[in-house]
Design a binder for these strands. Structure first.
Length: 222
DNA sequence: GCGACAG
DNA sequence: ATCTTGTCGC
């Protein structure tokens, strides 16, 4: 039989898929006050293995509710712009597991960009569309787009002439690039993110917890 | 061709 | 992302 014949990652097809799926992204506003559960997701690596974590966070009490982690092989390479094909499976897997075992998310916070992306379909949008959930992209570096001041003098991220997100900083000057993933507005994404961010830390609370969990669990894989 | 390039 | 010891600073 045809054993161990691996096809390599076709980034041309992957890019076309992103262009198609980007048409499904919604910017419809949501009611921020109605958000109770924020689920943050991140991925860590150990050789060819990856650990995907999903952390449920109580937006009102501002504390973790529960979390889950799953491990699997990572066989797609990292290519800027195509991060979702490498990490989204672990993230959606962890989020579904969390939903089945603990609580379902009202909004998902992803470590990576949303529509501040060359094809308007970063990993946060990918996850939002796949799960049909409102989602927010949070990244530590800008991938695509330009920074301009909006009418309220906030630093906005502009792609194709429209605002898709904002830059926010902690008390130490560390930046975070926030963008729409799916089913919310740039302003919704900004408000939600700032409402759960203890700015003494580098990332909004839910993601910071997920990020730390990722590093902690990474050393336990083998 | 050159430089840029999430995690 | 990950590889990595000590070291500067609050």
């Amino acid at each position: 039989m045809c054993l161990t014949i691996k096809k390599r990652f076709d980034y041309i097809v992957a890019q076309k898929l992103q262009l198609e799926l980007s048409k499904l992204v919604s910017f419809e506003p949501i009611e921020v006050q109605d958000i109770e559960v924020i689920v943050a997701t991140d991925v860590g690596y150990k050789g060819s293995k990856g650990v995907g974590v999903a952390v449920a966070y109580d937006a009102e009490k501002r504390r973790e509710i529960c979390h889950v982690a799953i491990v699997d092989d990572i066989d797609i390479p990292y290519v800027p712009g195509l991060l979702a094909f490498r990490e989204a499976p672990l993230m959606t897997g962890a989020i579904k597991e969390l939903s089945a075992r603990c609580v379902d998310a009202d909004v998902v916070m992803v470590n990576g960009h949303g529509v501040s992306h060359p094809r308007k379909f970063g990993i946060a949008s990918h996850i939002g569309v796949v799960l049909d959930k409102p989602s927010i992209g949070i990244a530590k570096k800008l991938l695509y787009g330009s920074i301009v001041l909006d009418d309220k003098r906030r630093e906005a991220i502009v792609v194709d002439g429209s605002i898709v997100g904002y830059v926010a900083k902690n008390i130490h000057g560390g930046s975070v690039y926030i963008s729409v993933g799916h089913r919310l507005t740039p302003e919704n994404a900004l408000i939600i993110t700032e409402s759960v961010w203890n700015k003494h830390y580098p990332l909004p609370d839910p993601l910071y917890i997920a990020d730390n969990l990722t590093k902690k669990l990474r050393s336990k894989i083998r």
